[in-house]
Simulated assay, not measured.
Amino acid sequence: MILQNKILATIFLIMLAAFAGTVSAASADDENSGSAYLTITSVSSDPSVFMYGDTGTVTVKIKNTGTTSVNYQRADLFSKDIKILNDDAYDTAGFIGGGNEIEFVFYVKATSNDGIYYPRFYLDMKGSGSVSHNVPVKIENTGLVISALNAPDYYQEGICKKINILVGNPRENAVSGVTVNVKGDVTTTQTSRFIGALAADASATAEFEVTPTSEGTMTFEVSYKNGMTTHTSELTLPIVYGTSKVSPNPIITNVK
């Protein structure tokens, strides 16, 4: 029994020494490669919420917290859900100076349905070691909504009417370059109205003075940018000639 205990104790010490050696070797590899001094300080995407088909960027910032330069072999972004457009942008070796921060920018295209996806960023160190991180990318395909606040039921040929178009942004992120255009069986002194940036959950109105040229339709088209990609939404209104049915104002007489 004593001999058996000695054998077990010896085996345990050998395993413990081997484990310690492995940890020391891994730590030494990280120390030698410099990855132990690298910290991912931020990850971001532009736009912050993609729409299907959008082109944008994913940016990863890394800081060298050490005092000497750290060499890396290459940087990559991998995903089966998001298309990487410049996957060979960082194929060449480089370095990060002591105390410095650099950013890696990848151009991507949203090619999946609504959801949150996690492309994987890798920074391979020269020699051994690496730094990796999952970058969240959200895709949500809701566009701007359009409504007419005061469109009449009937029009008269050649008679000008004012119509206010309300544009709302139900998205989680702001959009830019919002412009409203009108086309169809009407003439107008202003074919477009520029709204500009529209924050998340915000709305704006654009007023048009339209004169029908015939019965038919008029279409208000809203164009806007989500990041660097242009999108459009449309609202089509009918043009029907007739007389609006408006209740007469009551006339009160014999008031005492």
Rank of each mutant, 00 (worst) to 15 (best):
D81V: 07
D54T: 09
A9F: 10
G216W: 05
N226L: 00
L77Q: 02
F78G: 07
T68F: 12
A200V: 02
K61T: 15
T92D: 12
V255C: 07
T22G: 10
I7K: 15
N113H: 08
K61D: 10
V222R: 02
V178K: 04
E157S: 13
R120H: 12
N71P: 06
V167Q: 06
A28D: 14
M15W: 01
M1S: 15
G98W: 00
L166T: 06
S112C: 09
T213H: 06
D54G: 09
G196R: 04
P152Q: 02
M15Q: 12
S176H: 03
A151D: 14
A89I: 03
L123H: 01
G129S: 01
S79Y: 05
S35Q: 12
Q190W: 04
S69K: 15
M1V: 12
T217N: 12
Q4V: 14
N64D: 06
T213L: 11
M1A: 14
T57N: 14
T205C: 08
G143C: 05
G216S: 08
N5D: 14
V105G: 01
E103M: 11
P152M: 02
P238D: 06
N134H: 11
A202H: 12
I195F: 02
S69Q: 14
V186E: 00
A17E: 02
N173C: 12
K183N: 04
V60P: 00
A199H: 04
N141K: 09
Y122S: 09
L123C: 04
N249S: 12
T187I: 13
E215V: 07
T22I: 15
R74G: 03
A202M: 10
T253Y: 09
L149D: 15
G66A: 07
Q190G: 04
P136A: 05
F194C: 03
I96K: 03
A199C: 05
P250N: 05
I14W: 03
S48M: 08
H133C: 08
S132A: 10
L235W: 04
S176P: 03
P248F: 07
L123S: 02
N254Q: 12
F19P: 00
I2A: 13
Y122A: 08
N32W: 11
L77C: 01
T217R: 09
